[in-house]
């Protein structure tokens, strides 16, 4: 399996209210198709690490490489373009654009990328919505959907550009057990069937236990990395 994401000696500091080191010499390597969970107590720096490797946060020391491309030192606009094409996001709060329809929400990142025509994008968006079982809500306004439905739409949006990596910041944190299971199954399917990589920050122990690898953090350091042996994977 080839390496999709690699960090070397990443350090990060917060300066408010006083100087504080949040990430201490993080060396992380993620392989393609891996389903990785980042766990640890609140304030251990796992979300901060996620935002660094998501390219949204550029204020760090060390280097970040995704898909063999060095991303440290690139401009915000270059990074935005990179995220658009290679990274999908699923957040704890669903962050759909409330004025737009479900379908439009899914289509926007693809329209931004501009790789396909609008017709094709619409067809692809419907396909993703079908995959997540929310296609019957396609024409509804995003704000009219329930939390679980919104999160599924958010996953469809994350998938629309077929990104190499999908990053989740507690994607099940706000969901009931049924919807959590739906999201988990979806992630599982994405990695095994489509070969995409998933990195999520989670507090959900069961969720973490069922992923391929659990990386545990404490006080800004990685203190353990444990691969879960899964029968169907072996």
């Amino acid at each position: 399996m080839q390496t999709i994401l690699k960090t070397e000696h990443v350090n990060k500091y917060f300066y408010e209210p006083q100087k504080f080191q949040v990430l201490k010499d993080i060396n992380l390597e993620v392989r393609q198709g891996e389903f990785l969970s980042l766990v640890g107590k609140s304030g251990c720096g796992k979300s901060t690490l996620l935002y660094v490797i998501s390219t949204m946060d550029t204020d760090y020391e060390g280097t970040l490489e995704i898909n063999g491309m060095q991303l440290t030192g690139k401009t915000q606009n270059e990074l935005a373009r990179f995220r658009n094409e290679h990274i999908g996001f699923v957040f704890q709060f669903h962050f759909l654009l409330p004025e737009f329809s479900v379908l439009q929400n899914v289509m926007i990142p693809a329209l931004k990328l501009g790789k396909y025509t609008e017709k094709e994008i619409e067809a692809r968006a419907m396909e993703k919505l079908k995959l997540l079982g929310v296609e019957e809500h396609a024409t509804k306004r995003a704000s009219k959907l329930s939390g679980g439905q919104q999160q599924r739409v958010a996953i469809a949006r994350a998938l629309i550009n077929d990104p190499a990596i999908i990053m989740g910041d507690e994607p099940t944190g706000n969901l009931d057990s049924y919807n959590s299971q739906v999201v988990f199954d979806m992630f599982r399917q994405i990695t095994s069937e489509f070969g995409q990589t998933i990195i999520t920050v989670t507090h959900d122990e069961e969720f973490a236990a069922n992923s391929d690898r659990v990386v545990e953090m404490s006080d800004g350091m990685i203190i353990g990395s444990k691969a879960n042996l899964r029968p169907e994977k072996q």
Binding site: A80, F82, R83, N84, F95, L97
Partner: peptide, 16 residues
Amino acid sequence: MKDIAILKATGFGAAD
């Protein structure tokens, strides 16, 4: 603000 954040996360640049 939230919309802007998500747009930027999904690949919209400052100029967009």
